[in-house]
């Protein structure tokens, strides 16, 4: 039976991860014949299916909230006591942000508070990873399913980055303290000690100016500034170009609710070396070199191994491609469908 479904999120953007996930979720539901609309506080894109929060009547058969930070839409759901499915993408823990951008922690704290407020109204929850699911269960959510975050396949035509004689390391993600890009900068210095000439491309917009400035100063102090590329928010073609140029995709992030760039890198045949924090090991699924220790010597050794050992490299690339196929495209859509099916069947008309 066809249902009316409201996908509720704070803001709808052109490219951010939550908006992309919500759009693909809409496509899955619409393809199955359900009537879907977005409910948002603000929209940055023109889309005929968007309904602003102040006009929302909360009369759909099923309401699915995208939750990753404190928002007015979540407050409205709690205030109106709307039965909801919480689609949880995780919230950056405060301790990472507080030393750098104390003014940002209010939104994060609010988001975690809202998890408690929504719990009595949430008849189910969908999480990107088991890691996220554990967090919700700790808060008291009971019916929690796991389905990987949905993301667009990138185009195959990349724009090549400037040539470099040594090896190219790539990391994609916001310049944010929880992503720990400083560890990657430190690894460049350790690679120097191993006699390996490397450059590091840090791609992604910044959420903290002070963190960005500190990374620059840190790179200068270590004498590697010329080999660190702060690419910022790049176009899709540039991003693909960097993935294609990557000798290794390397992550020392300490907090990932899923880790889409890991999967994208795998899809483009870049071997992945990553610190095994939060959801990273389950996303990697054995197809990356996941490290229990991210001291510079260990990460540098791992990179050297992947670069110099053709068998390991080939195996990681092959396993990575298979893993990326599991977590994206039709397989990911099918997984989401199987999670949504009972929720749609039980939704009141």
């Amino acid at each position: 039976m066809n249902r009316g479904v409201d996908l509720v999120l704070s803001e709808l953007h052109e490219r951010d991860a939550t908006s992309t996930h919500a759009r693909l979720l809409r496509d899955i539901l619409a393809a199955d014949g359900h009537m879907v609309r977005f409910v948002v506080e603000r929209t940055m894109v023109a889309d005929e299916q968007v309904l602003l929060l102040d006009r929302w009547k909360a009369d759909a058969d099923l309401t699915i909230l995208q939750h990753s930070i404190g928002s007015l839409v979540a407050s409205e759901i709690a205030k109106r006591r709307v039965p909801v499915v919480v689609n949880y993408h995780n919230i950056t823990p405060l301790e990472f942000v507080e030393p750098w951008e104390p003014e940002q922690i209010e939104g994060l704290r609010w988001g975690r508070q809202q998890l408690w407020e929504l719990r009595p109204l949430a008849h189910a929850a969908i999480c990107d990873s088991d890691y996220n699911a554990r967090e919700l269960r700790e808060v008291g959510y009971e019916d929690v399913s796991v389905s990987p975050v949905l993301f667009d396949g990138l185009e195959r035509e990349g724009e090549s980055p400037p040539a470099f004689a040594g090896i190219t390391l790539v990391f994609v993600g916001r310049l944010s303290p929880n992503k720990c890009q400083q560890d990657l900068v430190g690894v460049l210095a350790a690679l120097d000690a191993l006699g390996i000439d490397a450059r590091l491309a840090l791609l992604g917009g910044g959420s903290s100016d002070s963190y960005r400035d500190a990374l620059g100063a840190f790179a200068a102090r270590l004498g590697v500034a010329e080999r660190v590329v702060f690419g910022g928010s790049v176009s899709e073609r540039e991003l693909v170009g960097w993935y294609e140029a990557a000798d290794v995709f390397v992550s020392t992030s300490e907090h990932e609710g899923f880790g889409v760039p890991l999967v994208e890198a795998m899809a483009f045949g870049a071997p992945v070396v990553a610190f095994g924090a939060a959801a990273v090991p389950e996303t990697a699924g054995g197809a990356a070199l996941v490290l229990a220790d991210k001291s510079p010597a260990v990460v540098a050794e791992a990179i050297a191994r992947v670069v110099n050992d053709s068998q390991v490299r080939a195996s990681l690339i092959e396993r990575g491609r298979a893993r990326a196929a599991e977590l994206s495209g039709p397989q990911a859509a099918d997984r989401m469908r199987s999670v949504l099916e009972p929720l749609l069947a039980g939704a009141a008309r």
Binding site: G286, A287, L289, A292, S295, V298, E301, R305, R323
Partner: peptide, 19 residues
């Protein structure tokens, strides 16, 4: 997959310690 990754991880950590 998981055994392959565990094996390479152990080798890498042992090599880093030795270095």
């Amino acid at each position: 997959d998981d055994r392959f990754a565990a094996r390479i991880q152990a080798e890498v950590m042992a090599a880093a310690e030795e270095r």
